[in-house]
Amino acid sequence: MKLSNVLRLRLSSHIGSMEILGLFNVLSTSVPRVPAFESMIHLETEYSHADTVLKFLQFTPNLESLAIVGGWFNKVNEDAFTSNLVPSCLLLHLKTIEVRKFEGRPEELKLVKYIWTNARILQVLIIQSGTSKTIVALEKKTQIMEMLLMNPRASTSCKVKFQFPK
């Protein structure tokens, strides 16, 4: 129950997947079944499994701000993106998403697209490119950004900011 008081949380990649999955098991079987992080408004994660990030969002119904440190995604479990159970924070509260170290990998793009198509009141999506500064890399990332913008989005008023390395 004390977890419900957490306002801001940073999940580091140093936390192992077994510890995170163990936490989910405890949270999903707790009585009463109340969202564990109901007060949380900001989450920053370096965690390497997109499907685990989405599961974690199920326990943060009032989340307003999400920062994802990318460039590290492992293979994505496709079931995470086809589930009809969209985290309520995406539908009702999430206003700002920042994706750092974005490299344009398919796994990263799938997570961004999922959030893009489900976050109904999203106001700002910030995508910070990773470290590659070559012209070819920047052209590839620009193509990816254009492709992303062509996808339908849940929030038509969302402003998108792309930041490339200097």
Rank of each mutant, 00 (worst) to 15 (best):
L91S: 06
E103P: 05
N84Y: 07
T29I: 01
V26G: 02
E19C: 06
Q123V: 03
F59D: 04
K2L: 09
I20R: 08
E146I: 09
Q123M: 09
L138K: 12
F102V: 03
R33H: 10
V53I: 15
T29D: 05
V136K: 12
G22C: 08
L66P: 05
M145N: 15
K159D: 10
S39Q: 08
L11P: 14
V53R: 05
G130E: 02
L27E: 02
L125R: 00
V136A: 11
S39C: 14
V53G: 05
R10A: 04
K159A: 04
R8W: 15
I127Q: 01
N118S: 07
N77A: 03
T96S: 09
E19R: 06
W72P: 06
I121L: 10
N84Q: 15
K141M: 11
F37L: 03
G70E: 05
V124F: 15
L85C: 11
F162L: 12
V86A: 05
S12D: 14
S129C: 12
I144S: 08
T82N: 14
F73E: 02
P106S: 00
L27W: 11
L27H: 04
V112L: 15
R10H: 13
G104K: 04
R120V: 09
K55W: 11
L63K: 09
V86H: 07
T60K: 07
L27Y: 08
P61Q: 04
T131K: 13
T134M: 06
N5I: 02
E146Q: 15
G22N: 14
I127C: 01
R120E: 13
G71N: 01
I20E: 06
T45C: 07
A67D: 15
H93Y: 05
T96V: 15
Q123D: 09
L92C: 06
R100K: 13
E38A: 10
K113N: 12
F81C: 08
L109H: 05
V124L: 13
G70V: 00
F73A: 03
L57A: 01
R153I: 00
V112P: 14
F162T: 04
I126F: 10
G104T: 00
L148K: 02
H93A: 00
E78F: 11
T52I: 12
K161E: 14
G130F: 07
Q143W: 05
E139M: 06
